[in-house]
Design a protein around this nucleic acid. Structure first.
Lengths: 233, 233
DNA sequence: CCAAAAGTGTTCAACATACACCCATGA
DNA sequence: TCATGGGTGTATGTTGAACACTTTTGG
């Protein structure tokens, strides 16, 4: 009975994370220089440990790099081309996560060589990590079109213009601010605060925060901002 | 350099397939009785071989069971809970596929104990296979809402009423035939044939086939039939 | 001739899109 | 006072949803 298991070849199982951040201007991915190929930028990654689930391992690896937990984390895809790692055959399950850049900016550089790169200006990446990033961007666009993901990339308090800049960056376009604002507010997911952003503009924009009870509850009926042609898979 | 690889624990890697079919009335999943637990129904699955990619392995396993190749096949999710297989820790990458039941009906029972089950009347399943099926159904609904997947489940020639029944079955609802027909035809993906279906209804419905050049080309802007509440993840 | 399924059009409401002006404030 | 970004409303077209009658033909 166990025989059919014993005959089988086991494989190394890695996890790689596409970590997205938003600095107020453009959508960024966090890359590191690590391990085997110290000269090449790569995604943050690690090995599955015997007692861990996949998502748990991805969360651990993300924590090791950023010191963050409780961040948005979603399985992207399992990559298993026999040649993807030229040294030893490895299956990699890629996860993508959305983090608030400001939450940890200081901690990252401490332990790892890590840097944020604009998604439009990426260096050559290790193995198939470039494919992973491409797929993650597609997925982010696809998903953010129907689900209110954007908040995961912004601080607790944010302004509508900031949120619009984020969507502009994700879709590499420029949405109409009147339509954008109307549509976002029509979801009733945002709570307007009394506070205004100071320093950036003269007038100052109102801060909002997510109504977290509704945020979890409502994953329906969201933005349709994407040019339809972007929705193709 | 290789050391960091050698220290790592390898794992068994399995593939499991959620195979959807449509018999004209309801949406079905193909289940088998196999291997370790011969008393429990399970998904068709197998082991990754050293020279195969993941999708390639899934396609091979699907071929072994059904004799079909060139079917719709899409990676669903990687399942890796430490306890999911109580005998040996195994990571399973699940794929879902859409097949035309009529294409092979005879071949399947030959080598495996296999049976089609309505998605609303599934037996208890091995390990976490129930979760896999649940997720696959969600994914199918989600995806079929925006992409013209339905044709993969029907014969080459099909009628609009057949197609509607399929969508009714997938979403467990009843679409309006006038709206359905208008919307489907507005995609220009269907070519009307001169031939009518005989035997089923007195009047007979026209056969259509997919315009395969457009089918590949256009993955944009498709059906929005789903009640919005179904779109939640 | 009648039962059963096929086929087709119109109206209404909701929503996406396009577009332009006034407001508040720091410099 | 003026330059900069913040904030708002309206008109138009498109699209989804609801809804009912006529057509065909095998029995």
């Amino acid at each position: 009975m166990l025989d059919q298991y014993k005959e089988q070849q086991p494989y190394l199982l890695a996890l790689d994370s596409i970590i997205f951040g938003f600095d107020g201007e453009s959508l960024k991915v966090l890359l590191v220089k690590r391990g085997v190929e110290e000269k090449t930028w790569s995604l943050m990654g690690g090995w599955l440990q015997p007692n861990e689930g996949l998502e748990q391992a991805a969360a651990r690896i993300l924590f090791d790099l950023t010191g963050l937990s409780n961040v948005y984390l979603e399985q992207l895809y399992a990559f298993g081309d026999p040649q993807r790692d030229p040294i030893v055959r490895t299956i990699s399950v890629a996860y993508f996560s959305l983090v608030k850049i400001a939450d940890y900016e200081t901690k990252i550089s401490e332990a790892f060589q890590a840097r944020w790169f604009s998604i439009y200006d990426l260096p050559p990446l290790l193995f198939d990590h470039g494919d992973m990033v491409d797929l993650a961007i597609k997925r982010l666009r696809y998903k953010a079109a129907q689900h209110p993901l954007g908040f995961e990339l912004l601080p607790e308090k944010f302004t509508i213009p900031q949120l619009k800049k984020l969507y502009d960056a994700v879709y590499n376009t420029e949405f109409d601010k009147r339509n954008f604002s109307r549509k976002i507010l029509s979801t009733n997911l945002l709570i307007k605060l009394d506070e205004k952003q100071k320093g950036f503009s003269k007038r100052g924009a109102y801060f909002y925060q997510v109504d977290s009870s509704k945020y979890r509850e409502i994953n329906n009926s969201f933005l349709n901002f994407i040019p339809t042609s972007e929705l193709a898979f």
